[in-house]
Each structure stands twice: as C-alpha cells, then as structure tokens.
Amino acid sequence: MRHRTLAAFGLAAVASLGLAACSGGSTTTSPDGSGVVTLKVGATPSPHAKILTYVNDNLAAAEGIKLDIVEYTDYVQPNTALNDGDLDANFYQTVPYLENAEKQFGYDFEAGEGIHLEPLGVFSNKHKSLDELSDGGTIGIISDTSNQARALELLATQGLVSIPEGDGDVNINTVTKLKNFDFREVEGPQLVRSLDDFDYAVINGNFAQEGGKSIASDALVVESPEGNPAVNVLVWKSGTDKSEAIAKLEKILHSEQVKKYIQETWSDGSVIPAF
C-alpha cells in the first residue's frame, strides 16, 4: 500500500486523469453530463457513516461530488467490496488493519491521511491517578490483539511497560513490566462493566461510552492522535478512474468544517480529529 500525503495524491490524480484522457480511457465525468461525480463509499455506521452524511449534506456539492454511502457492520466486507469494484472507497479502518488485510488477501489499495481517532483511555473506580498504582495491583486490558497492542503503547507512555524493539508482536507476554502489577485480559465490552475488579483498565472510547464513562471527563489518561497509527483513514483502490473525485473527498474530510463537526458531535471525546 502506498500511503501518500494529500498533496502527493492530488498530483498523482491529475497525472492519471491526463493519461486517461490521452488514451481515451474513462474519466470522472458523470454519465448525465452534469459534472457531479458520485462516489460509492462503504463505512461502518458510527462515526464513519455519520461523518460522511454530514459531508454529503453540507460540503460535497460545492466540490462537484455526491456520496452514495453504504453501511457495513463488519470489518471484512468493505474491503472485499472495494476490491471487487462495488465501492469507490471505504472509510472505517486504520492503516495497520489495512496493511494486514493487504498481506492476507493481496489487495492493492491506497490510503489517505488520518481523519479521526476513537481513543483509548485509562479508567479507574478506585484511584485518581496512575501514580496510585500499588505493588501487586491489577490492570484490565482488552483481549483483542490489535487493540491490546494500542493499550500497551498507551501504558508505555506512562512508564508502566517497555515495548520490545523490532517488528514483533506487542502483547502482554512480549512487553516488560516496569512496575509490579498483573494484567487481566477481558473482552472489550466487558472491561467497563468489570472496572471494580481492577485498579485500572485501558478501555476503548466506544466501550467506555456504552458503560456510562466519558473519555473527556472520566479517563485518567487518553490516547493521543498525534502520529498514532490507529487513526482512521479513507481508502481507495489503486488506479481508480475516480481519483480526482476521491482527492476532493479526502480534502473535505480534512477541512475545518469536518473538524468542528467531529468536536461538536462527540464532545465527550469518544471521537477526536486527527488533523
């Protein structure tokens, strides 16, 4: 996968359109001659489809594009549909997830820059700060492998664990604990419900919200979007003939209007802009 900056992608889009015009290939002009290009974009319902709906209702027309938003409730079908040509783009995944899917299925996709992060937070019903972690204490952590690695990265920023160097797996068995405590692996949705059983727990923002906790007001530590590989990105198929329209959508998704919409819609901090 070639992870380009927006500027680089925009230049590539113009170049590819020029080649298409010279060769008589397809362009991004709409079939009815209106000049408005429809992009079929797959997304999970929230926050992705909600953000795209805001874009379509308020910002897309000014850029000459229209979004046909297709909602998915799983993480496999949107990439399958994109690869099969049933979608022009999708918006639901992180770059590490995409890179793993490309290795597994041989996709040839490209991704834009980070749009938003659904951050992890450290929560506790017993303590006011991580400094209160006692000798032999317990930290609840998600059992899902990709989110567990994120949780451990967050704990590493707080000086609780050391992450091994290299490209090996990051999990509770490969990190070095820098203090005397025990990990307890729990499924994501159960972490907030089991919070009384631990000194602390690292919980995904959406699971915390479902359990009545707020990232903004209840988390002791919150994952930062800066340089974070877990930010969510727009993804498209390499060589698409709608590259110019996708570049416009990528630009809109990084606009001040979208940033403000994310901040106001998820004022609890469960979704934060990554730009």
Results as ranks from 00 to 15, higher is better:
26 S>C: 14
122 V>T: 06
130 L>V: 09
229 P>T: 01
116 H>C: 12
188 G>N: 04
24 G>K: 05
150 R>Y: 13
222 V>K: 04
141 I>G: 01
37 V>C: 13
47 P>Y: 09
160 L>R: 01
198 F>W: 09
21 A>L: 15
211 G>A: 14
104 Q>L: 14
270 S>L: 02
85 G>W: 03
195 L>D: 04
230 A>I: 02
159 G>Y: 04
56 N>S: 04
186 V>M: 05
144 D>Y: 10
124 S>L: 11
120 L>W: 05
44 T>Y: 05
175 V>H: 00
24 G>S: 04
18 G>S: 11
32 D>V: 14
21 A>E: 11
37 V>Y: 03
139 I>L: 01
86 D>Y: 12
156 A>R: 08
68 D>W: 08
22 C>Q: 15
134 S>E: 13
137 G>P: 03
274 A>S: 08
259 K>W: 10
129 S>N: 07
82 L>Q: 01
108 D>S: 07
273 P>T: 11
6 L>E: 08
118 E>M: 14
99 E>R: 15
240 T>N: 00
166 G>R: 06
38 T>H: 04
57 D>M: 15
178 L>K: 09
90 N>P: 10
52 L>I: 09
37 V>W: 03
226 E>L: 13
207 F>M: 12
65 I>Y: 08
37 V>L: 10
102 E>T: 12
214 S>A: 06
125 N>R: 12
177 K>H: 07
115 I>E: 10
49 A>K: 02
114 G>W: 00
202 V>F: 00
45 P>G: 06
139 I>S: 00
234 L>C: 00
265 T>C: 10
239 G>P: 02
223 E>P: 06
274 A>Q: 04
245 A>K: 01
82 L>C: 02
243 S>C: 08
66 K>A: 14
42 G>A: 10
4 R>W: 12
193 R>M: 11
239 G>L: 02
92 Y>G: 12
233 V>A: 03
160 L>V: 01
